[in-house]
Write a protein that binds this DNA or RNA. Structure first.
Length: 481
RNA sequence: GUCCCCAUCGUCUAGCUCGGCCUAGGACACCGGCCUUUCACGUCGGUAACACGGGUUCAAAUCCCGUUGGGGACGCCA
């Protein structure tokens, strides 16, 4: 049997990294088993669903390289196009006495919940309308439609006795007493099916073999299984992934700062790094930390998924990003960094080869593309500003003459302007003034970069070029009083 | 509150399925040495964990029970 998994985000906001991890695991499981990965859009909530969110979700997945075999733009994979199917499913349950109209008002339900809370009981539906409509009349019940005056909901008649057993691929066996499962609403009074109902029909129709999702859905599972049974269908296998928590141990959410895929993309992270981080959060393959996409496909399995929730560790993600940054082919890196240069309001160098050389000097010092551009500031600007503190410390009178001579030496370098020729110029100055390298290098660094921290001074100068170096050295000399 | 899930270094985890090889391994972070023109990179080393209590057993991080702690769910959201 071909494995078929699905990821079903709802387009009501950004694609969240905790959420996308579930999608990633479903995707990897499908790929590992040479199966089919399906993207389905849970947009039954038309109030909150937006085109903008949908676009962000699709673009985020593409950016991550999580490709789906079935899904958008095929309209079949949008729940909003399947209402007829949901109605049909509801009618079937109604006809068979497995669902019933509920006339309880939202206010009464709310009051009931509060009351239950006060009395320390579980706040489920009390079943008031369960027997209200004679079974014989159930087949004639129409679906709710407020505008037509049919202001009620349809509830699923959940079995009261017995147990429902979830044999989860990750968590193992979880047994639920059916008495714990109240009658959930499957159709809202506005005529829209609810998630728990629509998802069952979808999973059945699309022949999903493995439902992979966060374990916050575990309590829903026995309810969904009962709907499968009521429909005469066999439930899929389930794999409930542990959740991703914020540093405070609470479910990861917006208040934890950057949590969307787009946020990390814009912060200058690589998709490989995010993917690698996410896959190692809750899954492992021995001591291996770095995984290529192919290795993920090859090794991924639920057997190696942990059962406990993991805390999102931004520092490890940063380390992974650094790893991928160091490994990146310079040609590729040069392309990827351009949008970040532009975004900072700097002009993008026209010479790709030069850009690559520049990046080569910086990449072991930056962990993200944003940092990379921050460090590149002095390379990319024509005029730099010297940090006053650095100037006070290093641009002193005793170094004025050596700097001036060095400028002359560098200016007179003929032919090949390289690290070697720059070094030769330095050595001449060092020798004639009896200075140590450190005594000259720091002032030069301050003069050409504006600060005390930079890549090796020879490489900086070689990349910066003769004229800009000389110009900056002379400007510094002029500044020394 | 009720139901469900979970429990190895600060964090992610290996080991647990099939008890002995565990003096509990790796990674991030942290601390220190080396390298060095600054900052980094790199490299070498270090601190740091089986939640607790009972069993079972010759032997338990590994199996069982309980306690405690954490999380999730309890919606006309998904």
């Amino acid at each position: 049997m071909t494995v078929r998994t699905r990821y079903a985000p709802s387009p009501t906001g950004s694609l969240h990294i905790g959420n996308v991890r579930s999608g990633l695991f479903a995707y990897l499981f499908a790929r590992h088993n040479k199966g089919v990965f399906i993207l389905r859009i849970d947009d039954t909530d038309r109030e909150r669903s937006t085109q903008e969110s949908l676009n962000e979700i699709l673009e985020s997945l593409r950016w991550l390289g999580v490709d789906w075999d079935e899904g958008p733009p095929d309209p079949k994979y949008f729940q909003s196009t399947r209402f007829d199917r949901y109605r049909e499913g509801a009618f079937k349950l109604l006809r068979e006495g497995k669902a019933y109209p509920c006339y309880c008002t939202a206010q009464r339900l709310d009051e009931m919940r509060k009351q239950a809370e006060r009395e320390h009981r579980k706040p489920g539906y009390d079943g008031r309308c369960r027997e209200r409509t004679p079974v014989a009349d159930l087949g004639n019940v129409q679906l709710p439609d407020k505008t037509a005056g049919r202001n009620y909901t349809i509830r699923f008649r959940s079995p009261r006795a017995g147990q429902t057993v979830v044999d989860d691929l990750i968590k193992g066996r979880a047994v639920f007493d059916n008495s714990e499962l109240d009658d959930l609403i499957i159709f809202r009074s506005d005529g829209v099916p609810t998630y728990n109902f629509a998802t069952v029909l979808d999973d059945a129709d699309f022949e999903i073999t493995h439902v992979v999702r966060g374990d916050d859905h575990l309590p829903n599972t026995p309810r969904q299984m009962q709907i499968f049974y009521a429909l005469g269908l066999t439930p899929p296998a389930y794999a409930h992934l542990p959740m991703v928590m914020g540093p405070d141990g609470q479910k990861l959410s917006k208040r934890h700062g950057a949590t969307s895929v787009f946020a990390y993309r814009d912060l200058g992270y690589f998709p490989e790094a995010l993917l690698n981080y996410l896959v190692r959060l809750g899954w492992s393959h021995g001591d291996q930390e770095i995984f290529s996409r192919e290795e993920m496909f090859e090794y991924f399995d639920f057997a190696n998924c942990g059962k406990s929730a993991g805390i999102f560790n931004a520092e490890k993600l940063l380390w992974l990003n650094f790893h991928y940054l160091k490994e990146r082919p310079l040609v590729q890196l040069a392309q990827e960094v351009k949008p970040f240069i532009a975004r900072k309001g700097l002009s993008i160098p026209g010479d790709d080869e030069w850009l690559q050389k520049m990046l080569a000097t910086l990449r072991e010092r930056a962990k993200t593309l944003v940092e990379l551009v921050d460090f590149a500031d002095f390379y990319l600007k024509d005029r730099i500003e010297i940090e006053p503190k650095a100037a006070a410390k290093f641009l002193k009178l005793e170094i004025k003459e050596p700097l001036s001579v060095l400028a002359d030496r560098i200016e007179s370098i003929g032919g090949d302007f390289s690290e070697q020729s720059v070094q030769a110029a330095f050595e001449q100055v060092l020798a004639s003034f009896g200075l140590k390298l450190g005594q000259l290098a720091q002032p030069v660094r301050v003069a050409v970069t504006g600060g005390t921290v930079s890549p090796g001074i020879y490489e900086v100068i070689a990349v910066l070029g003769k004229s800009r170096t000389v110009e900056r050295l002379r400007a510094a000399v002029a500044q020394i009083k």
